[in-house]
Write a protein that binds this DNA or RNA. Sequence first.
DNA 1: AATGAATGAGATTTCATTCAT
DNA 2: TATGAATGAAATCTCATTCAT
Lengths: 197, 197, 197, 197
Amino acid sequence: MPRPRLEDAPTRLLAAGLALFARQGCERVNSNAIARAAGLGIGTFYLHFANKYALLRALQLRTLDGLRAARQAAVAAVGSESGLEEQVRASVEAAVAFAAEHPEAYRVCFGRERTAPAHAGPVVSESTRGIASALAAWQRAGVIEPALDPALAARAYLAMETGMLLWWLEDPGRTAADKLVETLVRGHPALAAQVRG
Amino acid sequence: MPRPRLEDAPTRLLAAGLALFARQGCERVNSNAIARAAGLGIGTFYLHFANKYALLRALQLRTLDGLRAARQAAVAAVGSESGLEEQVRASVEAAVAFAAEHPEAYRVCFGRERTAPAHAGPVVSESTRGIASALAAWQRAGVIEPALDPALAARAYLAMETGMLLWWLEDPGRTAADKLVETLVRGHPALAAQVRG
Amino acid sequence: MPRPRLEDAPTRLLAAGLALFARQGCERVNSNAIARAAGLGIGTFYLHFANKYALLRALQLRTLDGLRAARQAAVAAVGSESGLEEQVRASVEAAVAFAAEHPEAYRVCFGRERTAPAHAGPVVSESTRGIASALAAWQRAGVIEPALDPALAARAYLAMETGMLLWWLEDPGRTAADKLVETLVRGHPALAAQVRG
Amino acid sequence: MPRPRLEDAPTRLLAAGLALFARQGCERVNSNAIARAAGLGIGTFYLHFANKYALLRALQLRTLDGLRAARQAAVAAVGSESGLEEQVRASVEAAVAFAAEHPEAYRVCFGRERTAPAHAGPVVSESTRGIASALAAWQRAGVIEPALDPALAARAYLAMETGMLLWWLEDPGRTAADKLVETLVRGHPALAAQVRG
DNA sequence: AATGAATGAGATTTCATTCAT
DNA sequence: TATGAATGAAATCTCATTCAT
């Protein structure tokens, strides 16, 4: 049985960075403060990250991975033989749940910090891929119209989803989660372009 | 050591600020650089703006006004007796054209700088109002479903439109403007929630 | 009958400078602010004063003159044939009254600004002269001890008087004016060194 | 680029600040200059003091402590069974000696910088306390008149002492130290208010 | 691996002064 | 006389980064 021990430095730095970035924004935070908030020495920061943008990047990748996994698991859970709307709804619900559970991570990944840093790569294009390939698959299966441009539609939908979730997280009292899901499902290109028998 | 100026200082500062903000982002630009780029002395900046965030705010308000006016003019041009889709399309086309004509202003208003500065007020909520009230009017006219939440739908649509246009402006070669218009019209909540006779 | 007209620029500048210097201290005030507070244009300041220290100097000289005149008038009023203590008391009472009537002027003349400015000459040495010559006169008249050094004693007394009055003006509620007069008269070198029959 | 230091940074900064403040006055000195004069980097200043006023305050407190200690030691040395005048003279001599030995520190503590900075607390009120309590003690012992207000008298005396010493330090050639001591002892309220058998 | 004092480039902002009107 | 926009030197303070320990 492994003894519970203090988390290691990189983990502590990631946690401290997440909290500070979410609260103040990357540009307003400095690496000394992150190190201090992590309970570590100033120099220790540079032992694990080249600079604050590298830390930001690591946080964003971690979040992107987690969100992708959550969506995939949710879709897998409803089964591939279920209907288009069911699958879409499952994916959307997973995203909303993820944002609700990890509000700081979501904000740091998709909010103001999304594009800011020169060092951190683009976040949106990566997350677009999953949706686009799902749309393309449904298209090949003849479930949705061939006229739809999957890449474009995916990007449009994600812009909407991200915008809504960030706005929601600012003050979750503004709307109930299920109303949010409803709005997003309604606006999902897969349903709008569904081939109706 | 004052010098006579052809254009007045605020105008020059706004122009210089727009160019620099669009290229480097507000956090990467300093007020001295803006003043110099405007061909003015360092102190002159502070004669007209309290700090760079005030200048940013002025740019954003100007853009917001321009975009609103362009949309309204376009909708007015097709006439209020025209159909729902025609009006929506006119508004979307106006927005796409505006972004194409003022790419820097659009980016500075809706891009990374949208939320960044403590001093600049929120941009999105202001631009949401126009769409939301249009949706509400159509709703009262019985043209679209009463179930739709205008505020929520407006915000969702605008997140999509803004996201798409910013992405498009990064490299306008990615898509033709009319395909963009098509995608946005399709995703517009007014059409999705249209009451079909 | 002369028409009441707006005071002229120098007068307005002196008044504005007095108020600002008293409230914020010379180093914390700038000439633009003085001009504005005087209801005049920025450039107008330099038409009448070389810089803020020149204005300060003018204020100090005016105050010094006023205080000297008040003292002399008070001493003259009790008459030269009156006793030493009566004359001293008259002079002290005049100083206390002057400070009470012109608290801003007194503070600006003798307070923090007394020594600060490179341009403004020393204030204390000028005001010392009056007391020192009075002491010398009494000495020649055989009323006070010849051992006393008039210059030194005058300076010591004035340091005390000034220190007390500045402290009193900070919050006049701290002591009654007559208790102050009493303390100062008691400490006056003319009485301490009086030749007692 | 850190460098090893012989003396520690705060000590060097205090020494440099003392020299510069004494020569030019707090408002005329900037923190960069202090750091440079201390042979340290600009940023190092802010590692140890929040701003130049904090450094000034530290210098003043140090001086106040030193002066108080010197006075107390001197009075203790003559013994409490010695006469009033002896004790007063010991205290005055200690103050004069302290000022002569630490002219810069004395000037920075009691001179122009005494009141100037918003951040630095009041210096005079603190140094008043010692004298006032000594007067009160003698009063309780019946050595000096009960009519005397110890707080007021202490303040008056200290204004005189401080004013004289500052003036003397400007040019010590003006008077011999013992003449100064004589003038101050003469003007001391304890002697003026002594109850004569 | 961990530390934190030290560094200095650079950002922000102020203000005395000028001069064309 | 009077004005006030314009100027830029200078002051304050921050923070990413280094390196001796």
